[in-house]
Design a protein around this nucleic acid. Sequence first.
DNA 1: AAATGTGATCTAGATCACATTT
DNA 2: AAATGTGATCTAGATCACATTT
Lengths: 225, 225
Amino acid sequence: MKYFSAANFEKLQNIMYVKHAAKGDFLFREGDSADKLFYVRKGGVRITKLSESGRSFILYLHQEGDLFGQMDPFQDSLQSFSAEVTADCEIGVIQRKDLEVLLWQHGELAIEFMKWMGLMHRMTETKFRDLMMYGKPGALCSLLIRLSNSYGAPTGDHVRINYKISNAEMADMIGATRESVNRMLSDMKKEDAVDFHNGLITIKNPAYLRDICHCENCPLDICRM
Amino acid sequence: MKYFSAANFEKLQNIMYVKHAAKGDFLFREGDSADKLFYVRKGGVRITKLSESGRSFILYLHQEGDLFGQMDPFQDSLQSFSAEVTADCEIGVIQRKDLEVLLWQHGELAIEFMKWMGLMHRMTETKFRDLMMYGKPGALCSLLIRLSNSYGAPTGDHVRINYKISNAEMADMIGATRESVNRMLSDMKKEDAVDFHNGLITIKNPAYLRDICHCENCPLDICRM
DNA sequence: AAATGTGATCTAGATCACATTT
DNA sequence: AAATGTGATCTAGATCACATTT
């Protein structure tokens, strides 16, 4: 957990209890009580919103080391989204009440926690901007850059995204159809900007992608999934 | 400021200094240092993002009683958006450093502050969802509902939005063109769901709007501009 | 002068329908 | 069996061009 000092993270660890969940499980669904936070020790979680027509919109992908969950002023706060396990998980669950006591007691931790919250908010805001401003190609390029920042592993002078992803999943992340994603990716492959095999994508020309979404070189901690 | 107890808000007031700004001024622009928070004592502020092509995207409208600004872990945090004054302002400016000291000292205030941050984040997330999920009509209906929650005044059994707004401004809030907004509004007027004169909109049939954006009746504190 | 309204036309992206690949 | 690829067609919303209203 890079956003907290070792001492502060230890305090958080102390109020977590462990929960295991298998791929396909839901940690929570829309409308469930939002009285917990979740720290991903192992595995992956996808935060989604179902539309009336059966399609779904994917807001976040959380991986090992990510913390997520709501903090708000409501007594009986409800989840607006669902959390689906994408890879078998070991989760550290934090009760909001326990967290509040802890934060109340430790000012330094509270400050770090707030900065983490601010960071997450900026991540949401910039993603929002990226999906609104430069059409579906801009949205897809932003997505690829974020994926490569979150899951990228350098291979030679390219970056491979070590997260198996389908055209349909990408489509749900940018509010497009899988056919559109497919066509855009094919075009970008022709331009030698990306390459892909078996759901694994390699970024060959990041500058090409950055140009399309008018990337502003935000800090990497914000430009994530 | 409804999100803080009187005692805690007083503490915040004590570290504010007053700044006046006239309509059209910018409190900050994209790229400026983000080392302050802003409390709107009087007036209004619009948070925007300029696109390459000269159009702009409006993320938030802040009014009297709203607090805004970034808290994140960066030493030299930069603004991602601009803040344009829409009505002559009296602003309470808070230096982030001062705020940090205050929050460090007062656990109870820190907790309230975090809950406020969580609330703002949820507002962004739900707005994001509304603009992505049900096309431009869904986005416009969500916007009208949020405007009526933020600026609405009941007149008879209708709600009038006491904020003068043009079709172009609404378009910039939902990523559409002013022509599209105009046509959608005309249609809704025909359906007797809304009415408008001189930039002032009246909601005559909120249920009609809620249906189009698949409103989930979020708490009013989240469903705002 | 700036905002609104509205036809005519264009186009990005969705939808449909299959063939092909993994 | 599920994912990908790709033509053909459709449509929501953008763009263009003016007339009308505030």
